[in-house]
Computed example of a mutant assay.
Amino acid sequence: MKKCEFKIDAKISELNPSVLLTLSGPNTDSGLQAKPAYFQGIEKFIVDSDILFPVIAECRVIKSPAEIEVLRYVARVSSDAHKQVMKQIRPGWHEYQGESVFLHHSYSVGGCRHMSYTCICGAGSNSAILHYGHAGSPNDRLIQDGDMCLFDMGANYGGYTSDITCSFPVNGKFSADQKLIYNAVLAARDAVCANAKDGVSWVDMHLLANREMLGQLKQGGLLQGEVDDMMAAGLNAIFQPHGLGHLLGLDVHDVGGYLSHCPERPSEPGVNRLRMARTLKAGMYVTIEPGCYFIEPLLNKAFADPNLSKFLVKDQIDRFRTFGGVRIEDDVLITQTGIDNFTFVPRTVEEIEAWMAK
């Protein structure tokens, strides 16, 4: 039998291209680098590895109708899987048992063989660790009655990602303190959901969420002073040391945040953690994920800084030292007039308690 050999350089030479464009560039969110294609004989061509990446990345920012349907599906599967976790979990479980319920439902019911990222299943003080659940902290804590759970999990279907976070009390009933912090984050989330749309600044949405949350904490007696002064001092970054959200698609932290034609990363506390500083466009798919965390080193830093400590009511905040944190994260499509929220889980205190009571 005669061996068939295919030489790609010979085939390309027949086309006589003036230049070959190869895809190479960084995902400014994840830091991952797309490596350019290589084949034997590529050296004989003029190759440009700079032009293509920003063009393809920008194409990925705006979702096509077909992509939207896949993203809607995987968000629904993940939503239902979160609801199963909330329905089944009990005090005395380990964190990984909640994760296993999510994995089982996503695969057995939704056909999602893979996750979009390592599941974060933090209970109690672990819920203040933003990326808990990695190999060094493998979701193995025993969940105690009275603990708050923060479960950040998303299934993957056909390469398309979801990223949803639910926070809830393991026993299904919010304490007064849990309700205070949860409702502060929910108010931040609701404010963004009501205002995000085509033409709105993502930086402004982050600041809106932070301002709303600090206002709620002040009403709850944890903070004192003017919210605008708190924001100017950077207190918002003590309680939410991460950005409002990120682009979502083929990567869970998708490309397109800081391309050459986009605004640069802001430098002010809080907004310097944003995954992008762009103006929203219809067709963008993003997470909205405000959070409030009681992180010991950050609290100590704030109490040691007179510019920040003047806003803190110490005897009130001290009782939250081991509280952990709350995050509420939805996957939403930006439209001309608002958002299309693909996340379907109980969100209010009353909805969560009613669902878990079943």
Rank of each mutant, 00 (worst) to 15 (best):
I12F: 09
G283E: 07
P169F: 02
L280V: 02
D152T: 14
K281P: 04
H114V: 10
G92W: 05
E212P: 07
I288L: 15
E296R: 14
Y160H: 08
G41S: 02
E350L: 11
E99L: 15
F102K: 03
N27E: 05
I238A: 09
G234D: 06
Y107D: 10
L130R: 12
C292R: 00
P169N: 01
Y160E: 02
C149H: 04
A34R: 15
Q33G: 05
V255M: 08
N300F: 11
L222F: 06
L259Y: 09
D29S: 12
D152C: 14
H261D: 08
P138R: 03
A66R: 14
K83M: 15
F168H: 05
G41P: 00
K310T: 07
D145T: 09
V55E: 06
R265T: 01
G324Y: 08
G215M: 00
S79W: 07
L248S: 06
P138L: 01
S125D: 12
L248I: 14
P138K: 06
A196G: 00
I62A: 07
Y117T: 04
N300V: 15
S260W: 06
G291W: 10
S167D: 10
L52W: 04
H246K: 04
F311V: 01
S108F: 07
Y285F: 10
D152W: 12
D254P: 09
H105R: 00
D190L: 10
S260M: 12
H206C: 03
I46T: 12
G110V: 01
K2Y: 03
L21Y: 13
I51P: 10
V47T: 03
G249I: 02
V313L: 04
I317G: 05
L222V: 00
G25H: 02
L150N: 09
G124R: 01
R90Y: 04
H261R: 13
M284I: 02
M115A: 03
L214G: 00
C121K: 05
S167Q: 10
Y285L: 14
A128V: 00
Q144R: 10
K173E: 04
S18Y: 15
Q316F: 11
R273Y: 02
M231C: 05
D50M: 08
P138G: 01
K197A: 06
N183W: 10
Y293F: 13
L150T: 09
V252C: 05
R189L: 13
E264P: 04
V170N: 01
T335Y: 09
P26N: 07
G283P: 01
V255F: 11
D145E: 15
S162C: 03
A128Q: 09
